Simulated assay, not measured.
Amino acid sequence: MSEVLRESKNWSLQAGPVAQKMAQKTALVVYAHQSPASFNAAARDVAVEALKDQGFKVFVSDLYAMNFKATATADDIKGDLKNPELFRYNEETSVAWKEGRLSDDITEEQNKVKQAELVIFQFPLYWFSMPAIMKGWIDRVLTSGFAYTLERMYENGLLKGKKAMLSITTGGMESMYMPDGLNGDINVLLWPIQSGVLHFCGFEVLAPQIFWCPAHCPAPVRTAMLDGWRERLSGLMAEKHLSFAPLEKFDLSFQGGFKLRSEVKEKCASLSHGLSTGHHLGKPLPPHNQTKAQ
């Protein structure tokens, strides 16, 4: 038997288990809550269990337990800076990513994201946004060159083909986050995260899982919430993702100001609602734009 045939035979004998291992689905849960007895921890555990039952390999980044550094500083870069006189985090980390000089904690998280087909962000809504430690993960892990470039963003972002979603708890009841509610439309609150972070990096963004006011709900209601989450997880990967205005609708040039093309704006004139929560064009926001797949 020739060396080529021998190597080919040896490879084919190994391909079965190797291919099976490579084909295993992988998910990442990025989790931010201080207490292991919290509802957020229970929601995290349901996700991990349900995904493992479906054959997923599941990574969990427990940010508080990891004491994950929230501040984006020059310490995130190994070796010399490109421009130490005027430190620009975005530029320096982009170069460091290309050269393999990012700090070990960032590299470890990026490796998890690389492997994951699905990323779930589990956290309580703090001040209409995410906890600082979660924002630090976003700032430090989703670096230029790894998650996006100026040429590769939104539906062409570098994390294209992966799914991501928010799983969050609120302090207020659902009615408080309605368009006429005290806290304002939840769609407006979620737009910066879902469009400005996840969609910007290329993720297919699944509708958020929102647990309304679990801290003030009786135990049976909290149990029902978790049961509903478990049921949703069973079909999560088949869900349709949220829709956003595609890049083709915009004039992506400095001359055009990166604004909607004139012919698109003309067509939108007859619409009763804007294109999206962010691209509302002075019209009423499209209902449930950031909370339900259309």
Rank of each mutant, 00 (worst) to 15 (best):
E117G: 08
V119H: 07
F121K: 06
Q122I: 09
F123E: 06
F123D: 09
F123P: 05
F123G: 08
F123T: 01
P124Q: 05
L125V: 15
L125W: 09
Y126G: 05
Y126R: 13
Y126C: 15
W127T: 10
F128S: 09
S129V: 06
M130N: 01
P131S: 02
A132M: 00
A132C: 06
I133G: 06
M134S: 07
K135Y: 08
K135Q: 10
K135N: 10
G136S: 07
W137M: 03
W137E: 04
I138N: 02
D139T: 02
D139V: 02
D139R: 08
R140K: 05
R140N: 04
R140T: 00
V141R: 02
V141N: 02
L142D: 07
S144V: 05
S144F: 06
G145W: 00
F146K: 01
F146T: 07
A147T: 01
A147V: 01
Y148P: 07
T149Y: 04
T149W: 03
L150C: 03
E151H: 01
E151A: 12
E151M: 11
E151F: 02
R152L: 00
R152T: 11
R152I: 02
M153G: 06
M153N: 13
Y154K: 00
E155G: 01
E155L: 07
N156R: 04
N156A: 09
N156Y: 10
L158Q: 05
L158C: 10
K160V: 12
K160C: 11
K160D: 01
K160P: 00
G161A: 13
K162V: 12
K162E: 04
S167Y: 04
S167F: 00
S167G: 02
I168P: 00
I168S: 00
G171I: 08
G172C: 12
E174M: 12
M178E: 08
M178W: 15
P179G: 14
G181D: 05
L182P: 09
G184E: 11
G184Q: 12
D185P: 15
D185R: 15
I186W: 10
I186H: 08
N187E: 03
N187M: 08
N187Q: 08
